[in-house]
């Protein structure tokens, strides 16, 4: 359910970017989700199809890239991928670590269509 608020933010950002680029339509949106967040891509897609209606992003396809979690052990310095919430360092079993990656949620890029160049001559 919290994906509703997230989807509103996604639309807000891409509308701003599309306007800035002078786009007439947003064709594709690429969203990066860290694998330790609880955001569900199908839910975002569901809300997006509804909320984007009547906007410059109506009908845009959403692509999700999962970003794997990465952590550094504070005890032995090992670099590892925490597989779930109950993680500890695979080398020394320490539970004290620095989470470097895996909690992200950002828009990587958008693909837009721009108006065909028209023959406007400025005087």
């Amino acid at each position: 359910m919290h994906e509703y608020a997230i989807t509103e933010s996604i639309l807000e950002i891409i509308q701003t970017e599309a306007t800035r680029a002078g786009a007439i339509h947003v064709d594709e949106v690429t969203v990066v989700i860290g694998e330790l967040t609880s955001f569900v891509d199908d839910s975002i897609r569901f809300y997006f199809d509804e909320l984007a209606q009547g906007t410059v992003a109506e009908g845009a396809s959403l692509k999700f890239q999962k970003l794997e979690a990465r952590a550094t052990c504070n005890s032995c310095g090992a670099d590892f991928r925490p597989r779930n919430a109950f993680f500890s360092c695979p080398e020394c079993r320490s539970a004290v670590f620095e989470l470097r990656q895996g909690q992200e949620l950002f828009i990587e890029s958008i693909d837009v269509s721009q108006a065909e160049p028209t023959d406007i001559r400025e005087n």
Binding site: S9, I13, E17, L105, I107, E108, S109, D111
Partner: peptide, 14 residues
């Protein structure tokens, strides 16, 4: 045309 956005979706709330 591809536009790099790289914007945190939670930025407004944050």
């Amino acid at each position: 045309m591809k536009i790099e956005v790289k914007k945190n979706i939670m930025a407004t709330n944050s």
